[in-house]
Simulated assay, not measured.
Amino acid sequence: MAVTRRIVVGGVLAAASLLVTACGGGQIGQSGGGDVNKKSMVLIPGVAAEPFYISMQCGAEAEAKAKGYELKTQAPAKFDASQQTPIVTGVLANKPGAVLIAPTDDKAMAGPMKQLKDAGIKVVEVDTKLQDTSVALSSISSNNEQGGQLAADTLAKLVGAKSGSVLVLNTKAGTSTTDAREKGFAEQIKKYPNIKYIGQQYTEDDAAQAASKVTATLSSNPDLIGVFATNLNTGEGAATGLRTAGRTGQVNLVGFDASPKEVDGLKDGSFQALIAQDPATIGKLGVDQADDALNGKTPTREIPTNLVAITKADMDKNSQYFYKSSCSG
């Protein structure tokens, strides 16, 4: 994408919440009260400045522009319902025609998102989703349980006949995507009798916590031969923990996502494999489903998107799955 984009982060209703001004220009929602602005959409990712969500934003922006919509992106500083909720409230006051949102908690965000729906705003879930299926018209995400299974199979292939224990690093309890990844992994790894699954640990989506939990697990489980990190931050933190312990390459690290840092880690051997999503397509399809809803068509309720396992040997042919740090270039 050749157009340079500037992301500016600022407050919506609370100082802890950030505003990302995307490359579309103009103001969100041209109508003050009453009817929604049917040519306006807002994307509310799970967190600001994360390559997965930036890639999603790039896909959404390009599709919105092609379909004649103004799309703005507003994101919290942290993946946290207490920071995402005031953003939803601020968006509600502007009455856009549709909101694409990655709820940061599958229960806590139900109330705020239902307010959008009750105001006549079309709600589409991208990446994560609520337990309550009555709020959003469509949910677009990777098949995360299948992604966890793919991670287990990939880790087992890397380990081969060697025996030992494996750990899953999850993010926050109540995050629909990563919980599904752990579930798929836990079920699939049972097929490999030489591998002992010692369970999951939560990192609060913090790389430093992921690093410390890896080093602590190495102390209590010296037979550790594998780690599956369920998202970008836990993966980067796990790589740091293994590096600190001098176990890089000895403990096979399978990460979820393909951020620039993770791709670099795959190149230098910090990661042995990545399970990559297709966030740009998730953003594109989110706009398409919102467009259908705004034009009286029935959106597709559930849409799964592709996942691919990438190793150093095949990373060049899978480079289209690498995430972006900006929408330029």
Rank of each mutant, 00 (worst) to 15 (best):
Ala2Cys: 04
Gly10Cys: 05
Leu19Arg: 07
Gly24Ile: 09
Asp35Met: 10
Gly46Arg: 07
Glu50Lys: 12
Glu50Leu: 15
Pro51Cys: 12
Ser55Val: 12
Met56Thr: 13
Cys58Glu: 11
Gly59Lys: 12
Gly59Thr: 09
Ala66Ser: 15
Lys67Phe: 08
Tyr69Arg: 05
Leu71Asn: 04
Lys72Leu: 13
Pro76Lys: 10
Ala81Ser: 14
Ile87Gly: 05
Gly90Thr: 00
Asn94Ala: 12
Lys95Glu: 00
Ala98Asn: 02
Val99Ser: 00
Ile101Phe: 01
Asp106Trp: 07
Lys107Pro: 00
Met109Leu: 15
Met109Glu: 03
Ala110Arg: 02
Lys117Ser: 12
Gly120Phe: 09
Val124Gly: 03
Val124Arg: 05
Thr128Met: 11
Asp132His: 05
Thr133Ser: 13
Ala136Arg: 07
Ser139Asn: 10
Ser142Pro: 01
Asn144Tyr: 00
Glu145Arg: 07
Ala152Pro: 01
Asp153Ala: 14
Leu158Lys: 04
Leu158Trp: 03
Gly164Arg: 01
Leu167Trp: 01
Lys172Trp: 00
Ala180Tyr: 02
Arg181Lys: 11
Gly184Trp: 01
Glu187Tyr: 01
Lys191Phe: 09
Tyr192Met: 09
Tyr197Asn: 11
Thr203Ala: 05
Asp206Ser: 12
Gln209Val: 12
Ala211Thr: 09
Val214Phe: 02
Val214Cys: 02
Asp223Phe: 10
Ile225Trp: 06
Thr230Asp: 03
Leu232Cys: 03
Asn233Leu: 15
Thr234Lys: 00
Glu236Asp: 14
Ala239Ile: 05
Gly241Phe: 02
Arg243Ser: 15
Arg243Phe: 09
Thr244Ile: 14
Thr244His: 03
Thr248Cys: 09
Gly249Phe: 06
Gln250Ala: 14
Phe256Ile: 09
Asp257Pro: 05
Pro260Glu: 13
Pro260Asn: 11
Val263His: 01
Asp264Cys: 00
Phe271Glu: 07
Leu274Arg: 05
Ala276Phe: 08
Ala276Lys: 05
Pro279Phe: 12
Ile282Lys: 08
Gly283Lys: 11
Leu285His: 01
Gly286Trp: 11
Ala293Arg: 07
Leu294Ala: 09
Lys297Gln: 15
Thr300Ser: 11
Thr300Ala: 14
Arg301Met: 10
Glu302Ile: 15
Glu302Ala: 11
Asp316Tyr: 11
Asn318Trp: 12
Tyr321Asp: 02
Ser325His: 06
Ser328Gln: 14
